[in-house]
Nucleic acid binder design. Structure first.
Lengths: 197, 197
DNA sequence: ATTTAAAATTAGACCAGTCGTCTAGAGAAG
DNA sequence: CTTCTCTAGACGACTGGTCTAATTTTAAAT
């Protein structure tokens, strides 16, 4: 079994597609563009994915898997209070989303609106992925309550939900205005909502 | 000059397109679908708009114009405090965005991510439109400070920005989850941020 | 009132591009 | 030497936005 090679090509397609779709969207990008960039013939694509939609689901799945891994490392930095770890996360978010190049930006923000009325499968992955992120944030909020480094205005999972959504909205508006002010507003509001000032 | 008829057809195309694009997005919808639905021949389109992109700009322009008008009536309801008028606005937002049918929903939320990396023209309209909404909200926040019906955590325009973005994010996530919880979280957070509890 | 010039509107051709299919064969594994 | 995975890319059926040329409508002038 050549399973490693199999997943290499598959993963290579996914890796190539990420920055392209991240900047142009899902519908606007054709398979041709992705496959030419990846140097993979079209015939192979349908060996690894049964349709463009299935490919979209896989793209989001791997994206969230990676994201959650990174999130984990940020939120478990040793020698920092829960509040500090959390704020470092938002700071990362700000830096990434304030960058001009859309390639590295959050796929959830980019695709949520476009895709969730279009593909039930992709919508579900988005739902599960964002849910997992929020759950992980809630966990750190709990820790912050325990170590008394922050004081959320409400129950942890409720607070995590609102904070995550606040940042989604800020990122969306940052796409519109093309500057970091929306994100800086979010940072300020976040501090306030966590009782950090 | 048949100027009225001209703008009628033009406006008719715009009106027809709004719900379609509101539910399927900009790129995913072809001119054919819009024009067939509108009963306008394809050849006519380029008489009224110089390109699909120009049409997109016009669509957003009329959308924001209408929106600001409605916003104005909600925020000037007589016999209510600034806080009450503002909360009624968010409640409207919640009701619209929690509805299953995407046709009536906010075009800014639907199109921001998809379009602002794609068309500079549409991005600018989005920027100007959301800016105007935020400015109008800030005005009511000021009034609320004046009549002492609410106590924002920061300067009015900063607060208006964060609130609007919070609701954009909540709407985006409501699209993902297909329920009203994200919006209810936003409502709760809003009340808290305005010192209404 | 009839003709004519001009403008508004439409029909449909156009080609590049879409997703997905399909047949053929290359390459590796057992 | 058979079997199976994977590659190759032409192909079909269709849709995309755009544009030019023709038609219809309007207004003006005789």
């Amino acid at each position: 079994m050549k399973l490693s090679a199999t997943s290499n090509v598959r993963q290579h397609i996914l890796d190539t597609a990420k920055p392209i779709i991240s900047s142009k969207g899902f519908v606007a990008v054709g398979l041709n563009e992705i496959l030419q960039t990846a140097g993979v013939p079209k015939g192979s694509f349908y060996h690894y994915f049964k349709s463009k939609e299935a490919f979209g689901e896989a793209l989001l799945e791997t994206y969230f898997a990676d994201y959650l891994l990174q999130l984990e490392t940020v939120l478990t930095q040793p020698g920092a209070s829960a509040a500090q770890r959390l704020m470092r996360y938002w700071q990362y978010w700000l830096d990434i989303e304030a960058d001009c190049d859309p390639k590295g930006k959050c796929l959830a923000v980019k695709l949520a609106a476009e895709v969730s009325d279009l593909s039930e499968g992709m919508r579900k992955v988005l739902e599960q992925g964002t849910g997992a992120i929020i759950a992980r944030l809630a966990q750190t909020l709990e820790q912050g309550v325990a170590d008394d480094s922050l004081r959320p205005w409400t129950e942890s999972s409720e607070a995590a939900t609102s904070l995550y959504q606040l940042w989604m909205g800020a990122s969306l508006r940052a796409k519109i205005t093309r500057d970091r002010k929306p994100l800086e507003s979010a940072l300020l509001a976040t501090k306030r909502m966590l009782g950090l000032d």
